[in-house]
């Protein structure tokens, strides 16, 4: 085989390895708050089919992502579980001003794996029918803060204090309730939307400050075509429909 042919074969093999030959296709690294993981997966799949760009998703806690981005982690887009961290990234010059928006608003739900334990008005909170109430830690998770605000609003915060068990994230709070280790807990509506059994009370949105989850373009991603396209797609009707399907509110 002449050398020129070998080179040609290698070139073809490389181009096959490196994926579709769309010259405009780019890749963006997206840090996703754990509570939004499933939703983001579905959005990313549709996004890739529509644009040819690729969104590589990493899941974790928002606080950890903030620390990592502040220390140079290679993320182009950050989908936080709250509004404060993206604001701080912009203020610290680590994210692009004007590319920050609320992509989803979470709803809090009082949930139990036991059918009939939680009534439609949350009156169970005033009863003695449970030992442990799981929440996410309010210092690290916006859903935890919303749970505390709700208990304050109901005037039950002091009374429920001794019964509280705190997970480091809303995922862990959900785990505590799902395994039955805690009889009930304040979790994200998106977590239980697929759960058929159990019992629940959808906490009225007015009981706590809105759980706005914000997205932001990081400084690293400022010139990344795929990152900007992803944020654009996230604002669009197709992504909004998916977000609503997972029981978040979209404005």
């Amino acid at each position: 085989m002449p050398p020129s042919q070998v080179v040609a074969i290698i070139a073809v093999a490389l181009s096959l390895l490196l994926g579709p030959s769309n010259a405009l296709a780019a890749e963006a690294n997206v840090a996703v708050a754990a509570n939004f993981a499933e939703t983001a997966r579905e959005i990313a799949a549709k996004f890739e089919a529509r644009t040819g760009h690729k969104a590589v998703l990493s899941y974790g806690s928002s606080g950890q992502f903030f620390t990592q981005i502040a220390n140079g982690a290679p993320f182009d887009v950050f989908l936080s579980a709250d509004a404060e961290l993206p604001q701080r990234l912009v203020a610290d010059g680590l994210a692009v001003a004007g590319m920050r928006f609320t992509y989803a608003t979470g709803r809090l739900v009082l949930w139990s794996a036991t059918p009939g334990l939680v009534d439609g008005k949350g009156a169970v909170l005033r009863s003695n029918r449970f030992e442990k109430l799981a929440i996410a830690d309010h210092r690290t998770a916006p859903y935890g803060l919303a749970a505390i605000e709700t208990m304050r609003m109901l005037g039950l915060h002091d009374r429920l204090g001794p019964k509280l068990v705190r997970g480091t994230s809303i995922t862990q709070a959900f785990q505590f309730v799902q395994t039955g280790a805690a009889e009930l807990g304040f979790v994200a509506l998106s977590q239980v939307v697929g759960e058929k059994g159990g019992s629940r009370w959808l906490v009225p949105a007015a009981h706590h400050a809105p759980i706005d989850q914000q997205a932001v373009l990081t400084r690293r991603g400022a010139d990344n075509v795929a990152a900007k396209a992803f944020l654009q797609y996230l604002k669009g009707p197709e992504a909004k429909a998916i977000i609503r399907k997972y029981a978040y509110e979209v404005r």
Partner: peptide, 12 residues
């Protein structure tokens, strides 16, 4: 150890 983890998460 858990407290440290939470403090880092809370950016304290």
């Amino acid at each position: 150890s858990v407290e440290i983890y939470k403090l880092v998460e809370a950016l304290e």
